[in-house]
Simulated scan of single mutants.
Amino acid sequence: MNTKIEHIEAIALRIPFTAGGKSDVGAWGDGDLKTVDSLVVKVTTDSGLVGWGESFGFTSIPAVKVAIEQIIAPLCIGRDPSQIEKLMLELQRKLHIFGRSGAIMFGLSAIDIALWDIAGKAAGQPVHQLLGGADAKALDCYASLIRYTDPDTVVANVERALGEGYRRLKLHEVELPAVQAARQRAGDDVEITLDVNCPWTVRQALDMAEKLRPYKLRWLEEPVWPPENFEGLARLRREAGIPIAAGENASTLMEFQQLLRAGAVDFVQPSPAKMGGITELRKVFALANAHNTSVMVHTFYDGPGLLASVHASAALGGADAVVEWRYFDQEAYLYGDAIVPKNGAIAVPQGPGLGIEPDPDVVRDYRLP
């Protein structure tokens, strides 16, 4: 008799953190935010195998939790966990009327990641092996700083990241003095990317790009509002003189196809906890390869969504693979020290499935009611 999905549990966590200075309202969350919320999903089979997934959440967690528990989970109970692609496509088709983004897709993403974890455990292999195998035992990371605005605070955190061995940095600043200060402190040999979170019209973005060119950015990320303005991004890419990155707000394979067909980006950034999990992520790698475009997976989380990104990047990303690390200090980490980068690199887990199990004490101590 085939194994069946027996239970699905959505678990919200809230963990205090410090970030080397006061965060600026508008980057993500509130100004001077002191806790980070995440939503992990535990899928249990009737044979006792357990898989863990993660949804993109933050302030949308209550909506995603309801979507998983009341809409998605009942459609999964009793199904064969090994038929991942078949089940995910069926659920996308059944639930498309409720939206192809947001809570539904975030929830599907979490369950998909958990099913890949189960598949790896059932096979006794890490997920990266299921995706074709990986030679790399570790991947370079970039320290993804939050937005500070204050140049002195930016410099202090750049210094801290460099001191910990990072040679790649991401800023979330939108004002030139902060970017200038970071580049001056880091020097020309450190790779700096800039994520501005969709603030500008195309004309404004072109004007800003002219001012940003002297700072030799590896890429300018999500410069245009709205994020689905792929033609505007393509124009910016042609005229800005800075490589363009985007994709974390795309939710379906069709959006990625349109983004790449428009020639809008040099780096495409699928977010597996938002856009369908590992099942869809591997398709984006194939699409990007067909368009000669590098994939830089969006990983502004540190649970199963991050592990999914590491496995996929190691197996499918080739020599370009780099992992985003959310650069602040949490009171506790879901995996303890096992996944924290060392000297600017993150280990590729070698155990079955996602390769690392959540710390039950962290889940217990930081779980929201």
Rank of each mutant, 00 (worst) to 15 (best):
M1Y: 05
I5F: 11
I5P: 08
I11G: 04
W28D: 11
G31H: 03
V36W: 13
S47C: 03
G51S: 08
W52M: 03
E54Y: 11
G57K: 00
A63N: 09
V64C: 05
I68R: 03
I77S: 01
L87M: 14
L87H: 03
G99C: 04
I111T: 02
A114N: 06
A119F: 00
P126H: 03
G133M: 13
D135L: 13
A136E: 13
L139S: 08
L169N: 04
A182F: 08
V190S: 02
E191D: 13
T193C: 14
A209C: 13
L212M: 10
P214Q: 04
W219D: 04
V224C: 13
F230W: 05
G232Q: 02
R238S: 14
G241V: 10
G247W: 04
L253S: 12
L253H: 10
M254K: 14
E255G: 15
F267K: 03
F267G: 04
P272F: 09
A273V: 15
G276Y: 11
G277P: 02
I278S: 02
L281M: 11
A286Y: 02
D302T: 11
G303L: 06
A312E: 09
G317P: 12
Q330T: 09
P341Q: 04
K342R: 15
N343I: 00
G353E: 05
G355A: 04
E357Y: 07
P360K: 10
R364W: 06
D365N: 15
R367G: 10
L368P: 00
L368T: 10
